[in-house]
Simulated assay, not measured.
Amino acid sequence: MRQLIKKKTAVMPLATIALALALVSTILLYAHAESEPGPTPERDRLLPVATFSPEQVDQFPVTTRYTGLVQSRRAATLAFEPEGRVARIAVEAGETVTQGQALAALDTRRLEASLREVEGEIEATEAALTLAREEEERQRNLRSDGASTRRDVDRAVAERRQRQGQLNSLAGRRDRIQANLDDAVLTAPFDGVIAERRVEQGDLVAAGTSAFRILQPDNLEARIGMPATQARHYEVGDAVRLTIDETRVQGHILDALPEIDRARRTMTLRVALVDDGGTLVPGQMAHLHHQGSVSEEGFVVPETALTGARSGLWALLVAEPVADDRYRVRRVNVEWLNSENGRALVRGPLDPEMKVIADGAHRVVPGQAVTIVDQAEDETR
């Protein structure tokens, strides 16, 4: 029993010492934690935002896109001048042809028969004209001998003139038939490609019926319509930039057509195209980018800073200073006037010294406390 009491007496000082050490350690840790600076509840409520200062301007650069079509600078619609039946077709759409190459021909049997007929009439009329001239000469001789009257001479002169007129008329008919024979064979007026064939072998065509469309695919231009006030800014030879099927294409001004398009009320610019890759074809849409400006006073802000508002207006959120690095959000309604490349021209109660929240406006609301972490002035430049 005594031994047990001695053991308990020896253990108790050790337990007391361990408990004291643990208590001291706890006090020291708590004191160290109290000495560390930590965020206050007020600081935790400040949302960091980036701001910019709106740029005040009296002119705003804009790029206007005008649209037109790619066309061949040399193209023609070929038609048969005489009427007749198509006897032969020598080419198909898409084929390359050379100047003077025969494309199609009409049946010329009736024309050839008409030509032989008129040539026979010409031969008979020439013989009658020869007799009329001889008769006129004979009557003049008789008149000089007193064996003929003035009336007989006049009758001989009239007969000769009538035969001469008939011969001239027949010669005109012959030339017209010969021209129809020549035009019965349709030939290429220049080197190019057959873009379209509009007749079939055996078709009976009227005079003037178009048969082919031919163009030069490597000699292209764009015809762009724009207001006359803008077209006058360009001179022959000016370099321009176009977009065709999302591809940038270089060109230069050939000329401007001298009249206003009545349907669109625009003036047409002819632009020669540089097709280095051989990818352009007639009929594609071409867009010319015209660099200009509008005279309008306002402020330039990034489009991302604008949010929708009522009555057709837009809103900017402005950070107004409260104390030190604390700011309060306020809404400013503005009118959106124009935009270009992510920059918007607005009009409203703004000031170049204001701090406008650049983006993330959906994260804050008017009246909210914020702090500024960055001045994003470059976004409006």
Rank of each mutant, 00 (worst) to 15 (best):
L129H: 09
M12H: 05
A211S: 12
S210W: 05
G298M: 04
E303N: 10
T9Y: 09
Q101I: 01
T77K: 09
N333I: 03
M1L: 08
A323E: 15
S25C: 06
Q59T: 13
Q201R: 12
T268M: 14
G100A: 07
G367L: 11
M285T: 11
T63V: 15
T51C: 10
R110S: 13
R151E: 13
E340L: 02
D44H: 08
R241L: 05
V153K: 01
L254P: 00
R174E: 08
R88D: 12
D255P: 00
E134D: 14
L115M: 05
D261I: 04
H287Q: 15
P61N: 05
Y30T: 11
R197C: 03
L288C: 03
A132L: 12
A105F: 01
R262I: 08
Q162I: 10
L47W: 09
D183W: 08
T77Y: 02
V356F: 05
R310D: 14
T51F: 04
N141M: 12
V294I: 15
G84F: 02
A231V: 02
D191M: 01
G172P: 00
V97D: 02
Q166Y: 00
L316S: 06
A113C: 00
H287R: 10
G277Y: 01
V24D: 02
F190W: 08
L170F: 14
G237T: 08
V318H: 07
A358E: 12
P349M: 05
T125G: 12
E134M: 05
L254G: 14
E36H: 03
P13M: 09
L316H: 07
E335G: 08
A358P: 02
R155K: 13
T266Y: 04
M285N: 08
Q178L: 06
T371K: 15
V199Y: 05
T307D: 06
V300R: 07
Y66S: 10
V118K: 07
R74L: 13
E81V: 10
L204V: 12
S148M: 06
D275S: 03
D218N: 15
L167C: 04
E83D: 03
A358G: 04
L103P: 01
A305H: 04
K6M: 07
V365P: 00
A50V: 01
G100F: 07
I27F: 09
E42A: 15
S35T: 12
S144D: 13
A188Q: 06
G84S: 08
V281D: 05
P41F: 12
Q166H: 09
L69H: 02
M285G: 00
D154E: 15
S25R: 08
G192C: 01
R343M: 10
R328I: 13
R138Y: 06
Q178N: 07
R347Y: 12
T209L: 06
P258N: 13
V322D: 14
E55R: 15
G208Q: 10
G298Q: 11
V370G: 01
A50M: 06
H252D: 06
P37V: 14
R43K: 11
A31F: 04
